[in-house]
Each structure stands twice: as C-alpha cells, then as structure tokens.
Simulated assay, not measured.
Amino acid sequence: MKTNRLSEKLSAALNEQMTKEAHASQIYLSYAAWADNNGFSGIANFLFRHAAEERNHMMKILEYILNRGAKAKVIAIPAPANDPISVNNCFEKVFKHEIDNTNSIYKVVKMALVEEDWATWNFLQWFVKEQIEEENLANYLMDKITLAGGENAKGDALYQLDKDLEKTSGEVKLAQDATTTNP
C-alpha cells in the first residue's frame, strides 16, 4: 500500500501540469499536421518530434505523481486552437505557448517551495531547465523566420527554412552549460 506524500494542493497542481503537457503535445501535433498539409515537411517533422517530446514530459509528471503515492488524474484535454495562418504565425504561437507553459511550471515550483516539499521542488528543476531550452528554441525559430522574411517570407526563403528545420535536432545550448572550451 502506497502512502501519499503529496499535499492535495500540490497533487492537483501536478495533475494540472500533466494535462498542460498533454495539451502541448496536441498543439505541436496539430501544428505539424498543418505544416505538412501546406507542404512544409521539414517543419512538420520538427514539430512532430516536439509533440513526442511534450508527451514524454507528460509521462514524466505522471510517473512522479504515482511514485509519490498520489492519484494521477487523466482528463480530457482541450482541442488545439485554430491552425496557424502562416509559418511566421506558427512560430509565434509556439513561442507564446512555451512562455505560458514556463509560467505554469513556475507556479508549481513556487508551491513546492512554499510547502517545503523538497522532493517535488527538486523534481521540478528538470522542468525549469527544460523550459529554458524550450524558450531558447522558440526564440531560435522566431529568429529563423525573421531572417526568412517574417510574415512576408516566400518561395526560396521558406523552402530553405523548411529544409533547415528538417535536420535541426531541436536541442539548443544553454548559457549555463557554456565553458571556455565549449562556448
């Protein structure tokens, strides 16, 4: 028999974050399908990989909740918002979503700190670091589309962007990991 080691409030917050991660996966999946339908197979591939990554984040939280002896609640997730209207708009939506997700994670981190639940606070540090990477990646995408012409990007620029993102891993180096030998 497991003993619940999460407060009711923190358990609810973690379950809510788990649902947000599932929703993030659906959003990326939706944007990937939109990109593919519009002939951007490289961008679609990139976004499909991110959909899988977001699902892994959901699973990480689910496992943590269960390992702490609390009840994981799997609920319906909202449908993704409307499809993007352009590649620029797609990346703007990705950026906004990542900022919203970061703010949500910060709320759960603060809650763990206030409750002095150090196990949960420590667990959430992985997500804090991950969100730095996600925001940096969203900035990278915004920079790429800006270089391609932003909302006015057309033809060769979009073609090259699509090809570049097809090969991009989605990994962005973090400033805290830089050294003089590995800038």
Rank of each mutant, 00 (worst) to 15 (best):
I75R: 08
A51S: 15
F46K: 03
N45E: 15
K96R: 13
N56D: 15
S30V: 08
A70G: 12
K110Y: 10
A33Q: 13
N89T: 10
V94A: 01
R55F: 14
M59V: 14
K96L: 10
L62D: 04
A12P: 01
L62K: 08
D36G: 14
G69K: 05
E16D: 11
E54R: 06
E16G: 03
L47F: 11
H97R: 12
Q26W: 10
E8H: 12
R55E: 07
I75M: 10
A44C: 08
N103M: 04
I43M: 08
G42H: 01
L10S: 03
V108Q: 01
D83L: 09
N82P: 07
F48C: 05
S104L: 02
A35K: 02
A51N: 07
F95C: 10
S7A: 06
Q26I: 00
R55G: 06
L10G: 05
R49S: 13
S41K: 14
S86H: 08
L47Y: 02
F48Q: 08
I77E: 04
N38Y: 06
E16M: 06
L62M: 14
A35T: 05
S7R: 07
H50V: 09
Y28G: 01
S86I: 05
A35N: 07
W34L: 00
N37P: 03
Y31V: 02
A79P: 03
A51K: 08
H97M: 11
Y64I: 08
A33Y: 13
I99V: 14
I65M: 03
Q17I: 02
Q17D: 02
E21D: 05
L29C: 10
A72L: 01
A72P: 07
L14S: 01
I99E: 07
A32T: 08
K110G: 09
S25K: 04
M111W: 02
F48V: 09
L66Y: 10
N101I: 11
K93Q: 13
T19E: 10
F40I: 04
A35S: 11
K20Y: 11
G42Y: 01
T19C: 09
E92N: 09
L29T: 07
A35L: 03
E54S: 09
I61P: 01
L10C: 09
S11F: 00
A12K: 12
S11Q: 11
E53F: 06
N56H: 15
E54C: 06
N56R: 15
A33K: 12
F40C: 04
N82D: 15
N56E: 15
S30P: 02
K107D: 12
K73M: 10
A12S: 12
A76M: 09
K73H: 07
S7N: 06
A70L: 03
V108C: 01
N56A: 15
E63T: 13
A33S: 15
